[in-house]
Design a protein around this nucleic acid. Structure first.
Length: 279
DNA sequence: AACAACCACAACCGCTTCTGA
DNA sequence: ATCAGAAGCGGTTGTGGTTGT
């Protein structure tokens, strides 16, 4: 911030050190320096780390580069269906609390999740001409997107080719969540139009092992939107609350693969038809 | 082939929160 | 209790690759 601001209009001339600061994409050489330095000295104290390592970067920049890219346990690339499911779930509960959400996706960074949400989820909302926080869009997620994900996870687990890095950890929240969804033990939400007549209510979140208290409505302390959550979006009964996808349900809509994006174009009409039948 | 439009992701920015003196 | 520096967070922008015309 500092360099940029001071060089643009401020009477305070930038110090020599600030003038020397690099910005923009990191080079391989910088990455190597940072990784080697952290390997020896550990992370933290980012400003002094940047100085001592001889990097002409701010401490913030070093920290971000390490956390989002260079850390050995960072996972990049395709977001698995389990992870997508978990992101939808946790976002419905917490809103844009990306770092909090990221804590439950091992190896994923808040930045990556945030980007995923913006580029995929918000894009689809835009295509549907509705807000991501609107009931319409949440219903799309609830009745179409999530069941689709559940089915994909189910299919994958049937083939015992489960998504990498999310399935082999007993404590893994994504796998846990998927298990919860698939088991579909509770049944109160099916066609829950009576209890959901107000369009919002409290819910009992599935176990997410951070001891987070049973949330009422997400948004919580950050009041970043007071998102209204469809009744059973988060109750673990998705697959019960809608027509069976394998017996005349959404499978019959001929939806293309979730990741391909195109199916959303056709989704809105199908969604409208179905919702009109429901509400 | 060239250009524009779009997309995904990396990085930055400003603000808030935490921590230690 | 207060203050300064460090760390963390969420929103935004920049960049490079891809796709369409």
């Amino acid at each position: 911030m500092e360099f940029h601001e001071r060089t643009s209009g401020s009477a305070i001339p930038p110090s020599e050190e600030e003038q020397d600061l690099r910005r923009g994409p990191w080079t391989v050489e910088e990455d190597v320096v940072l990784v080697n330095y952290i390997a020896v000295h550990g992370e933290g104290r980012w400003n002094s780390l940047a100085r001592c390592a001889g990097l002409r970067r701010t401490g913030k920049s070093c920290r971000l580069r390490w956390l989002n890219y260079l850390r050995p346990d960072v996972r990049r690339g395709n977001i698995t269906p389990e992870e997508q499911l978990l992101i939808l779930e946790l976002h419905s509960r917490w809103g844009n609390r990306w770092s909090k959400i990221a804590q439950h996706l091992p190896g994923r960074t808040d930045n990556e999740i945030k980007n995923y949400w913006r580029t995929r989820v918000q894009k689809h909302a835009k295509q549907l001409k509705c807000d991501v926080n609107s009931k319409q869009f949440k219903d799309v997620m609830r009745y179409l997107w999530i069941p689709r994900l559940v089915e994909r996870i189910r299919a994958a687990s049937g083939n015992s080719t489960v998504a990498p890095a999310t399935s082999d950890r007993p404590e893994d929240p994504a796998a846990e969540l998927a298990r919860v969804k698939l088991s579909s033990e509770t049944s109160s939400a099916a066609g829950s139009s009576s209890s959901d007549s107000l369009g919002m209510h409290h819910f009992s979140p599935p176990p997410v092992s951070d001891g987070f208290p049973a949330a009422t409505i997400q948004g919580g302390e950050d009041n970043s939107g007071d998102v209204i959550v469809p009744a059973d979006l988060t109750t673990g009964c998705w697959s019960e609350s809608l027509p069976s996808s394998s017996s005349g349900g959404y499978a019959d809509l001929g939806l293309p693969d979730l990741d391909q994006g195109v199916w959303w174009d056709d989704l809105w009409s199908a969604e409208n038809i179905w919702l009109q039948q429901q509400f």
